[in-house]
C-alpha cells in the first residue's frame, strides 16, 4: 500500500511546474565532475599520405611500401621547426607507432588541506589530470635530426639524423598532474 501511494506521488510530480533555482541555491549544487579517458592512437603505422600521394620531382620516388619495420623517411610523420629565418630546421622525423592508455582522468578539484600545510593556504580549484597507470607502446619510434629544408622534397635537401628512439612495451606510472593559474594577469 505504501508503495502504491509513493508511485501515485511520482505520477503527480511531473505535472508540477518547474521552479527556477536562485543563484544561492544553484551555488550549493555539486555535480559529479570529471572525465575518464582511454585511448589508442596509431600514427603512420603503415605509412602516411607522403608515401602514397607525394610528388616525385627532385629525384624522389615517394611511392613505397611502408611495412612495420621499415625506416624509410617517407613513411613516418615529420615536424620541422625553424628557429632562425635564414637558417635550417630542427626536425622530429619518422614519427610512427601505436600508443595506448587506459584510465586517464580529467577533473577539477578543490584543494584546501594537505600538501604538508600548503593546501590550506592555497584554497583554490585545480585542474587534475590523473595519469594512467600504464602506457603501452607498440613500435613507437622517432628520429631527432637537423635538416637544411623543411621537406625531403625540397631542392638540395640534406639531413643529419642524430639519433632514433624506439619504444616498445609498457611504461608504468602513477600520480596526478595539477594545473592552475599563477601570477596576476
Amino acid at each position: 500500500m505504501k508503495a502504491l501511494i509513493l508511485s501515485c506521488a511520482l505520477l503527480i510530480l511531473p505535472a508540477l511546474a518547474l521552479e527556477p533555482l536562485d543563484s544561492q541555491a544553484l551555488a550549493e549544487v555539486t555535480g559529479q565532475g570529471g572525465v575518464y579517458l582511454s585511448g589508442d592512437l596509431t600514427i603512420n603505422d603503415t605509412g602516411g599520405p607522403l608515401n602514397r600521394d607525394g610528388p616525385s620531382q627532385n629525384g624522389y620516388s615517394w611511392q613505397t611500401a611502408c611495412g612495420v619495420n621499415t625506416t624509410d623517411k617517407r613513411c613516418g610523420g615529420r615536424i620541422a621547426v625553424n628557429t632562425d629565418q635564414s637558417g635550417g630546421w630542427l626536425v622530429l622525423d619518422n614519427i610512427r607507432g601505436r600508443f595506448a592508455f587506459e584510465g586517464l582522468t580529467l577533473t577539477t578539484r578543490r584543494i584546501d588541506s594537505g600538501f604538508d600545510g600548503d593546501g590550506a593556504n592555497f584554497n583554490r580549484d585545480v585542474m587534475e589530470i590523473g595519469l594512467p597507470d600504464q602506457l603501452d607502446y607498440n613500435d613507437v619510434s622517432f628520429t631527432i635530426a637537423n635538416s637544411n629544408a623543411p621537406r625531403p622534397t625540397d631542392a638540395g635537401f640534406q639531413q643529419t639524423d642524430i639519433m632514433t628512439l624506439n619504444i616498445n612495451g609498457t611504461v608504468n606510472q602513477q600520480g596526478n598532474v595539477l594545473l592552475f593559474p599563477t601570477g596576476a594577469p
Binding site: V126, V171, N172, G175, L178, L179, F180, P181, T182
Partner: peptide
C-alpha cells in the same frame, strides 16, 4: 603579461623500459 600556468606533480612515480 598573462597569468601563468602552474604545474605540480602529485604522488608521481614513473618507470620505463
Amino acid at each position: 603579461q598573462g597569468a601563468g600556468l602552474g604545474v605540480v606533480f602529485e604522488n608521481f612515480a614513473f618507470e620505463a623500459g
